[in-house]
């Protein structure tokens, strides 16, 4: 059986990433502070990054690690625009509670 890298099976990384992703989803649903929601999205992106790196290491393929670069690029751009939006929202309604942002709801 050659499916173990340095004594750690691939399934462990799969379960760790699943737990992290679920915590990210829980954070998006649980909190009302928009910045915490953005941080939970970052957590989800990082769980996927970890899974990609694990598959890359087990597969011996460097292309997955390049994909991780691109995910980091998109995350950085997303955070820059997202935090600018947060500042704009706070300037207009003086809060980051997402329950007050319901003008587009219906």
């Amino acid at each position: 059986m050659k499916e173990v890298i340095q004594g750690i099976p691939l399934n462990y990384y799969l379960f760790l990433s699943t737990v992290l992703f679920s915590i990210g989803v829980l954070g998006v649903l649980f909190r009302r502070n928009a910045i915490i929601i953005l941080m939970s999205v970052e957590l989800m992106l990082n769980s996927i990054n970890l899974l990609l790196v694990a598959f890359s290491a087990f597969h011996g393929d460097a292309k997955a690690q390049v994909f991780v670069f691109f995910i980091m690029i998109v995350a950085a751009a997303e955070v820059a625009v997202g935090l600018a939006l947060m500042v704009l929202i706070y300037r207009n309604i003086k809060t980051l509670d997402i329950d007050f942002l319901n003008k587009l709801k219906w």
């Binding site: 499916e3 173990v4 890298i5 691939l10 890359s56 087990f58 460097a62 292309k63 690690q65 670069f69």
Partner: peptide, 22 residues
């Protein structure tokens, strides 16, 4: 169980290799 082969290739994460792929 996922069948994965460990190619024992420890230099796929180096700057040189990643730069070539990128």
């Amino acid at each position: 169980q996922v069948e994965m082969v460990n190619l024992d290739n420890s230099n796929i994460g180096t700057i040189e290799n990643l730069g070539k792929v990128l």
